[in-house]
Design a binder for these strands. Structure first.
Lengths: 223, 223
DNA sequence: ACCTGAACACCGTTCAAGT
DNA sequence: ACCTGAACACCGTTCAAGT
């Protein structure tokens, strides 16, 4: 008999061998997904990790939760970068570097980023990591707006959506033009400046729309 | 024995019943993919069309080529719109309406648009439809640039990629905020204007990069 | 020529038996 | 507790037999 569904496994204390195996699966999965995309098979991951595939299911629940665990790591890393950049006195530049780092990460691991969108619905951990990321971005954006570097009719979620947009649009060309994303970041960033801002016809997404789309509670801190 | 692989089927003359069945499959597939995404099963499509699923494989080769046939229709429709808009004397406005229509179509059928990216590699028909679309967009952009409505350091492919970017970014929210895409089109379009254009750090994709990424010959007509 | 139920291969997931 | 080969279910694809 299988143990009760361990779908929501916040990485509690594990026996030594289990802990080591968990790390192996994470490493193998990260490589395989990056190379072969979301359709990479659990068999491949298990083989690369040197384990039986049932072991992966025991630890992570299913394929989506394995992706969620990987996503958590990336999102948290990006949030930490955002928090560090907050100490930069030039907030416009800090925001831009933050956006650049986010695009670069998303573009270098397309599969994972495709997954992140639909994942916060499943995993509270992912949602929490996302919230932390949004909070960090929010601090950068507010300060940049305060300094007059960014137009004030934009919200943090707007900025994050545009970052995701650039990454996804450039993805098919990324193997052959690895710096192309900078071009579109330049263009989009020009659209974020106050210099030539025209009125926007649609309001930003409301809290209830966000909740409906992403499940759970929306991100706070929008003007 | 199955007939020789009919992978590349340019919709030649078919027997009456086959023609009718082909149309039924297209209609069923269009609906099912739009509702359930790319992972919709061939069984579902066959059931909705009232046919055995082997019939679909006989006519279209495989799932990807079925998607390609659908994609062709959409791309051609969009190209025709672009050609009509070319007669508008206000080229900036025409380009913007063209972009709006493209975003709206992509957002309303996410699955198909996800597929279009990787498809021109397979189907010459898709590639041809894409080329026609690009030519139409190219005429609109050049005239808009000539009239001073759009900055001159952008290419047609830039515009198309940005359109795809907006569509993909907004997709997860589209069910709950169906007009949200206009917001990001506004912002991006502000980045396309000459008013506050800053220098761009990266050149547009080269012909050989496009060829490598999308297979076949690149689109012509870039400055 | 075209149509199709049955068979095959692959992959996510679960189970029963192992340590 | 944890590990795993075998079994199951599902889906894309092909086949052999039908009209």
């Amino acid at each position: 008999m299988a143990a009760e569904p361990q779908s929501v496994i916040p990485h509690r204390r594990l026996r030594g061998d289990a802990e080591r195996n968990r790390a192996r699966v994470m490493e193998a999965a990260s490589g395989v997904f990056a190379e072969e995309g979301l359709s990479a098979s659990m068999d491949d991951i298990a083989r690369r990790a040197g384990l039986g595939k049932a072991t992966i299911f025991r630890r992570f629940g299913d394929k989506n939760h394995l992706l969620a665990a990987l996503a958590c790591d990336r999102l948290t890393g990006m949030a930490e970068l955002g928090e560090q950049l907050a100490s930069d006195p030039d907030a416009g530049s800090a925001l831009r570097r933050f956006m650049a780092a986010a695009v670069e990460q998303q573009v270098s691991d397309r599969a994972l980023c495709q997954a992140i969108g639909g994942l916060s619905r499943l995993e509270p951990d992912v949602h929490e990591a996302k919230s932390r990321l949004i909070r960090a971005a929010d601090a950068l954006l507010r300060e940049a707006q305060h300094q007059g570097a960014i137009r004030t009719d934009l919200t943090t979620l707007d900025v994050m959506l545009l970052v995701a947009a650039i990454s996804q649009a450039v993805a098919p060309l990324h193997d052959y033009a690895p710096r192309l994303w900078r071009r579109y970041l330049d263009v989009v960033f020009d659209g974020l400046r106050p210099d030539a801002a025209n009125p926007i016809s649609q309001p930003p997404p409301t809290a209830s729309q966000l909740k409906a789309a992403f499940g759970r509670c929306p991100w706070q801190g929008q003007p």
